[in-house]
Design a protein around this nucleic acid. Structure first.
Length: 413
DNA sequence: TCTGGGGTCCTAGGACCC
DNA sequence: TCTGGGGTCCTAGGACCC
């Protein structure tokens, strides 16, 4: 049985959702991401704005210079999530083997659905119409025998189109495209390839695999496969729906004005740690490694990491590690950005001992209850966390066995 | 033009162990 | 006293994606 994948990519997703709620935006240059004089970048630009050279990831201030008449909106993440969910439901009815790759794109494995949905192109059109009917949003769909080619095809189909690459035609389809069109080839790799005389994907297939490996390492080999349309190595090689648990959970914040105030920086580290810990608990994951990131006014960026003795999902353990790492690395100059990252994530079952597991589970439940209170009563909660911390310390002081994830210490006689 | 925030994956060097 | 590799863990940095 031959494989068949769809890549569904929503057209100008954030902007299109905004238009659903405010139809007067339709056809106008719209920029989602923030106000035109803020720090930050463009999350999405309408096609009218793109005509002025505005594109995503561009600084907002640059977008304003290119297109001062554009309508700048902050955006509504909850609405995007809601509509992403609606899209997912449509796709899931079409095929159970579906995976959202991000908020606005998804892969489907359609192998063996011909009797149900008909030949690939007809099936893609059917899905395209279903998405439009249910969500009132446009999307583009690429269909091919590999996930990689399906993705490139959906990009070529934009806007609002459907493109099927016939089996056997993958390399011919890719050959005339710029190497930059291959997912994973960014600015740097593109420049390196240009210096090798490679501008089109077809130029890449003309090179020896051994040359690419020598020049680009492991990546070079994968690249040679990609140029021929194969899901060679890395993320594309995983089956649809088998991505599993997240590998890291993080939050970072760029200050609107750089600051060197220790109190403000500490408070931000605590806040970021709390947000990370909260999501660890939601995922029922424990972090073994805590990392921080700091960025100074000149954009120089540093990371510092520490692996803990036991994995944690507690606000206080994360923030203590984060603050310690930060103060050891900080040169006291003004800070532009702070970040807190949880890595080496373990499922509860991965804990060293059953005893640890039970204690961790008890703590997870306790803190999840706190999370619910936080949901209900909102922000007054920070003091709740501090209070919990105090209560926790008191308990530990009384009886060290209450310390989660640690074996009880021997009492001294 | 003055550069967000959430992720994934890869590389490379040093520590440490066998 | 000098000198092997291989494997794994840890840390820092960077490319890339949406």
């Amino acid at each position: 049985m031959s494989s068949l994948y769809f890549h569904v990519d929503m057209d100008a997703f954030f902007v299109s959702v905004e238009e659903l709620f405010d139809p007067s935006l339709k056809g106008k240059p719209v920029v989602v991401g923030g106000r035109s004089n803020e720090r930050g970048v463009v999350s999405a630009a309408s096609y009218a704005a793109r005509k002025f050279g505005v594109h995503s990831a561009m600084p907002l201030r640059t977008a304003y210079k290119l297109c001062p008449q554009a309508i700048f909106v902050e955006g509504h993440r909850e609405r995007y999530r809601e509509y992403s969910g609606k899209v997912y439901e449509v796709l899931q009815q079409f095929s159970p083997r579906v995976e959202m790759a991000s908020i606005d794109e998804a892969y489907l494995n359609l192998a063996g659905t011909e009797r149900l949905h008909g030949p690939p192109l007809a099936a893609a059109h059917k899905l395209h119409e279903a998405v439009k009917r249910v969500t009132d949003l446009n999307c583009s769909i690429g269909a091919a025998g590999s996930r990689l080619v399906a993705k490139v095809a959906s990009d070529q189909a934009k806007p609002n189109g459907v493109l099927w690459i016939l089996p056997g035609q993958e390399a011919a389809f890719l050959a005339p495209l710029d190497v930059r069109k291959i997912p994973g080839v960014g600015k740097v790799t593109e420049r390196n390839l240009h210096t090798c005389g490679v501008r089109k994907v077809g130029d890449l297939t003309a090179l020896e695999d051994s040359f690419l490996e020598k020049r680009f390492g492991k990546w070079g080999l994968a690249l040679a496969g990609k140029a021929r349309g194969r899901d060679a190595g890395g993320w594309f090689d995983t089956e649809v729906g088998e991505s599993g648990d997240p590998k890291s959970i993080s939050h970072e914040h760029t200050f609107s004005v750089d600051t060197a105030e220790a109190v403000a920086l500490d408070a931000m580290l605590v806040r970021l740690s709390e947000m990370v810990a909260r999501r660890l608990r939601d995922h029922r994951l424990w972090a073994r490694t805590v990392q921080i990131k700091l960025r100074y006014s000149d954009f120089s960026t540093f990371t510092r990491a520490r692996t803990l003795e036991h994995a944690t999902q507690m606000d206080t353990e994360l923030s203590a590690a984060a603050r310690d790492l930060f103060h050891k690395a900080w040169n006291t100059k003004a800070i532009r950005l702070l970040g807190v990252y949880a890595q080496q994530l373990e499922a509860a079952q991965g804990q060293a001992s059953l005893l640890n597991h039970e204690k961790n589970e008890a703590w997870r439940k306790t803190l999840s209850a706190v999370d619910k209170l936080r949901d209900k009563y909102g922000d007054g909660v920070v003091s709740l966390a501090a209070g919990l911390d105090a209560a926790f310390r008191a308990r530990v002081h009384e009886n060290p066995e209450n310390l989660p994830g640690k074996e009880p210490e021997k009492r001294r006689g």
